[in-house]
Simulated assay, not measured.
Amino acid sequence: MAQIELIAPTLFGLEALTAKEVRDLGYETISVEDGRVTFRGDEYAICRANLWLRTAERVLVKLGEFEATTYDELFEKTKALPWFDWIPEDAEFPVKGYSLKSKLFSVPDCQSIIKKAVVEKLKQKYNQTWFEEKGPRYQIQFSLFKDKATLMIDTSGEGLHKRGYRENANEAPLRETLAAAMVMLSVWKPGKAFIDPFCGSGTIPIEAALIGANIAPGLEREFVSQNWDRVPKDLWWKARKEAHEQIKNNADFHIYGSDIDPKAAALSKENASLAGVEEYITIKQLPVAEIQSQEEYGCIICNPPYGERLGEIKEIEKLYRQMGQVFKKFDTWSYYILTSHEKFEDHFGKKADKKRKLYNGMLKCDLYQYFGPKPPKTSAELRMQNAENLTIL
Score class of each variant (00 low, 15 high):
residue 89 E to Y: 11
residue 327 F to P: 07
residue 312 E to M: 11
residue 334 S to R: 05
residue 300 I to Y: 03
residue 119 V to T: 15
residue 352 A to K: 05
residue 226 Q to W: 06
residue 168 N to W: 00
residue 39 F to S: 13
residue 384 M to L: 14
residue 234 D to I: 01
residue 310 L to T: 06
residue 121 K to V: 07
residue 388 E to G: 02
residue 145 F to M: 02
residue 217 P to W: 08
residue 27 Y to Q: 03
residue 386 N to C: 07
residue 166 R to A: 05
residue 78 T to W: 13
residue 225 S to I: 09
residue 211 I to K: 00
residue 387 A to H: 08
residue 368 Y to E: 09
residue 53 L to F: 11
residue 365 C to P: 02
residue 299 C to Y: 02
residue 6 L to T: 01
residue 342 E to S: 13
residue 57 E to L: 14
residue 269 K to N: 03
residue 76 E to C: 04
residue 134 K to I: 11
residue 338 L to A: 09
residue 71 Y to L: 12
residue 381 E to M: 12
residue 118 V to T: 13
residue 227 N to T: 07
residue 120 E to H: 14
residue 54 R to W: 09
residue 123 K to Y: 10
residue 47 C to K: 03
residue 351 K to W: 05
residue 115 K to T: 10
residue 94 P to L: 03
residue 137 R to Q: 08
residue 180 A to V: 05
residue 13 G to K: 00
residue 273 S to G: 08
residue 367 L to H: 03
residue 198 F to D: 01
residue 266 A to R: 06
residue 51 L to P: 09
residue 34 D to Q: 12
residue 245 E to Q: 14
residue 363 L to I: 15
residue 221 R to V: 10
residue 314 K to R: 12
residue 360 N to G: 04
residue 98 Y to E: 12
residue 154 D to G: 05
residue 191 G to T: 02
residue 108 P to I: 12
residue 148 K to P: 05
residue 255 I to D: 00
residue 41 G to Y: 04
residue 304 P to E: 07
residue 76 E to T: 12
residue 18 T to M: 01
residue 265 A to F: 06
residue 287 P to S: 14
residue 104 L to M: 08
residue 217 P to G: 11
residue 334 S to M: 02
residue 12 F to S: 09
residue 101 K to C: 02
residue 260 I to G: 05
residue 229 D to K: 12
residue 62 K to Y: 04
residue 99 S to I: 07
residue 316 I to H: 11
residue 293 S to T: 14
residue 347 H to D: 04
residue 120 E to A: 14
residue 276 G to P: 11
residue 81 L to G: 12
residue 196 D to S: 05
residue 385 Q to A: 15
residue 102 S to K: 04
